[in-house]
Design a protein around this nucleic acid. Structure first.
Lengths: 132, 132
DNA sequence: TTCATTTGTTACCTCGAGGTACCTACAGCA
DNA sequence: TGCTGTAGGTACCTCGAGGTAACAAATGAA
């Protein structure tokens, strides 16, 4: 029945070996990763290939509000997924860049995203079957 | 700079080839996957290796409320990730099981989860650096 | 007759995500 | 003397997630 060869026991064992705080943190990481603008923001910074000003990111992540982008970037910075460098100039300049850890996380997410995109039709069919 | 070898252009190309509805659906799939009880529920059904009654799932997914589990299972059923079979008995019996599509999705998520668990320490350190 | 069982549904509550809109500070420029 | 541009902070709003608690429906058991 386990046709995919996934050993969920292995995952559970990994979780059991962690402290409760660590366990809940792993959960938090995955949850935040799926928040509305997080992946998109990281992808934009990854594609840029170097530091990017706040307003450039704001343009590239189409539809995000200033407030939400600020919050998203703060969280990413806190988790070590992006770096932030502020320059004491007028008008102010702040540059963001993705970190090695951020690139590693994107590498993990990448196949999932590709799979989801490639299998959209199967989901559409399932929903039509259910709704109709 | 793209040290991970990820070709995000490839992902974007995939997205560009989709209709807006399909694109937003792919986004929706990934978002729902990260909702509070979704992955846990799927993992429980996958580990069971066969059909499971509602109340068994309710026990295994510790902390979930009846209402939330019902909603979670409905969404999973709608997306073709689990099956639901109701028996006309008293008291009622309803059996849930994971589908092939569900197993495939778990297979995609698995490495991400393992990576997140394995790298918890790096996130903890980043947060301590930021907060302290 | 009354109660337990099982799978929901519904009303009501709280909390947080995320949006819009408006405010600052300060130098340069017309 | 205003006006512009940048990176944010803050007030206020709406919307949905998710919790608790109570109820339904029907049958077999006490």
């Amino acid at each position: 029945m386990k046709k995919t060869g996934i050993d969920w026991g292995e995952v559970n064992a990994t979780c059991d070996a962690m402290s409760p705080e660590e366990d809940s943190l792993a959960r938090t990481i995955v949850t935040q990763m799926a928040e509305k603008w997080t992946l998109w923001t990281m992808a934009v910074l990854a594609e840029a290939g170097g530091p990017m000003r706040f307003s450039r990111v704001l343009e590239q992540v189409e539809g995000v509000s200033q407030k939400s982008l600020t919050k998203t970037l703060r969280q990413l910075e806190r988790d070590g997924l992006v770096t932030r460098e502020a320059f004491a100039e007028v008008p102010p300049r702040v540059e963001y860049a993705i970190t090695e850890l951020g690139m590693e996380m994107l590498a993990q997410v990448h196949p999932l995203w590709v799979w989801a995109s490639a299998n959209v039709k199967r989901f559409v069919e399932a929903r039509e079957r259910y709704d109709g």
